[in-house]
């Protein structure tokens, strides 16, 4: 465990908590893509099945449980408790265009052709693109609440920190996981446009709105 990995995990946790608190405090999930949140719940579910088969550390197990629980809580708030505020008309990304190719790819390109490993690979690939419905929604409405941009910033920062963690681990531990690295690079690239807007607009106190 190096500092980049730890701050990456904490950044991920911060993103998840920010989103939950935003929805809970405002009693509204306006501007949030339920589809992205469903995909993240699927990502955590398929990745953390190893909770049943292997124990790595107390830290590892507790973080996994927290991520899974929070992602299900978020989906519950969006689709059940605050369903009336869910902006389904703008959440129109076709998730089958992500899930089907990602599912196929995880069968073709994986470390080991076993059920658990294929599901892990599926979750890694799916996570890299799971934010697309949310970004699509923002591009459609042309704006995002500031708190939503903080959520996206920490979510993007997490994978960027993991990239540095992988460089670190390659040099100091000889660890290299091509699947995770390639997917992590793709995932981080998807946030670059958003990072630019976040730094140039949100951090200067302006609301994130896109030109019409």
């Amino acid at each position: 465990m190096n500092i980049f990995r730890l701050t990456g995990d904490l950044s991920h946790l911060a993103a998840i908590i920010i989103l939950l608190l935003k929805i809970w405090k405002t009693r509204s999930c306006a501007g949030i893509s339920g589809k992205s949140q469903l995909l993240f719940a699927l990502v955590f579910t398929t990745r953390y099945l190893d909770l049943f088969t292997s124990f790595i550390s107390l830290y590892n197990t507790s973080m996994k449980l927290i991520y899974v629980a929070c992602s299900y809580a978020t989906v519950y708030l969006i689709y059940m408790k605050f369903k009336a505020t869910y902006d389904g008309n703008h959440d129109t990304f076709r998730v089958e265009f992500l899930v089907v190719p990602v599912g196929g790819l995880s069968f073709l390109v994986n470390h080991d052709f076993s059920p658990l490993e294929i599901l892990w690979t599926f979750s890694i690939y799916l996570e890299s693109v799971a934010i697309l419905p949310q970004l699509f929604m923002i591009s459609k409405t042309g704006e995002a609440e500031t708190i939503t941009t903080h959520y996206l910033f920490f979510l993007g920062l997490y994978r960027a920190l993991y990239l540095i963690n992988w460089i670190w681990r390659y040099y100091f531990e000889g660890f290299f996981d091509l699947i995770a690295v390639v997917a992590g690079v793709v995932q981080t690239i998807l946030y670059c446009d958003f990072f630019y807007l976040y730094v140039t607009k949100v951090l200067k106190g302006k609301k994130l709105s896109l030109p019409a």
């Binding site: 190893d50 088969t53 550390s57 996994k64 991520y67 994986n110 490993e117 996981d177």
Partner: peptide
């Protein structure tokens, strides 16, 4: 890295 050993990252 042996895949069967599991993944230590989140």
């Amino acid at each position: 890295q042996e895949a069967t050993e599991g993944h230590d990252e989140l």
